[in-house]
Design a binder for these strands. Structure first.
Lengths: 105, 105
DNA sequence: TTCGTATATCGTAAATATACGATATATTAC
DNA sequence: GTAATATATCGTATATTTACGATATACGAA
């Protein structure tokens, strides 16, 4: 077994790393900004605003859903996405806590 | 060319995604905490505190150096690492700005 | 100068991420 | 029921990340 030694690290560091990973692609940051701006969007609207294919955008949405930064609600043939405000706030607090532990901050 | 469509996104989102990537592994979060706690460390001390091989830890240090979150100073046969406080603070501000743009925060 | 120590880098294997087109599924409209 | 639409998922190619052992390099000590 060569990978995934990740279990040996402490829970808090794993949580932080996990959400940082979800934020580690500009398309996903962009999607968060779009949802913040427009309150909610269907997939197709997001696809029009992001310079990537529909299937790729769908994958990025999936990654954001994985860490619950966004919620998707099925509305007939479409899915309406919006920010998960609770998790956004929690994530803010995770980062705030990290930086507040640094002596220099 | 299938990857690296990344250039098409705006600078601010790319910057954020880039530093988030550096934070997206628990070993690297752990290294930052260690350097904060001990002020400065040589590679060997960090290797003793992280459950990964010397070469792997060295790679993680390289990634943190890539985004300038840490500085490495060569001292004879060893390298002494410490946090780059300026960049840590700048990164804090990048995240703070991101979260402050969200209506819910 | 030779030996030991510290560490970065090389080579490599496996896992994951990124991207796309094609397809399956589900719903609405006709 | 059939067609059109929206979107998630599949299959696939490629790039990147993660991990390790081995090696090269560079310094200090003997």
């Amino acid at each position: 077994m060569s990978l995934a030694k990740t279990e040996t690290f402490n829970q808090s560091d794993k949580e932080l790393a996990n959400v940082a990973k979800a934020l580690s692609h500009p398309a996903r940051i962009s999607i968060l900004r779009i949802l913040n701006e427009l309150n909610s969007c269907i997939t197709g609207e997001i696809v029009e605003l992001i310079p990537l294919s529909q299937s790729t955008v769908s994958q990025h949405l999936k990654e954001l859903k994985r860490v619950n930064l966004i919620k998707g609600e099925i509305e007939g043939p479409r899915t309406c996405y919006c920010l998960n405000e609770t998790v956004i706030e929690k994530t803010k607090s995770i980062f705030t806590t990290l930086f507040s532990t640094f002596k220099c901050c």
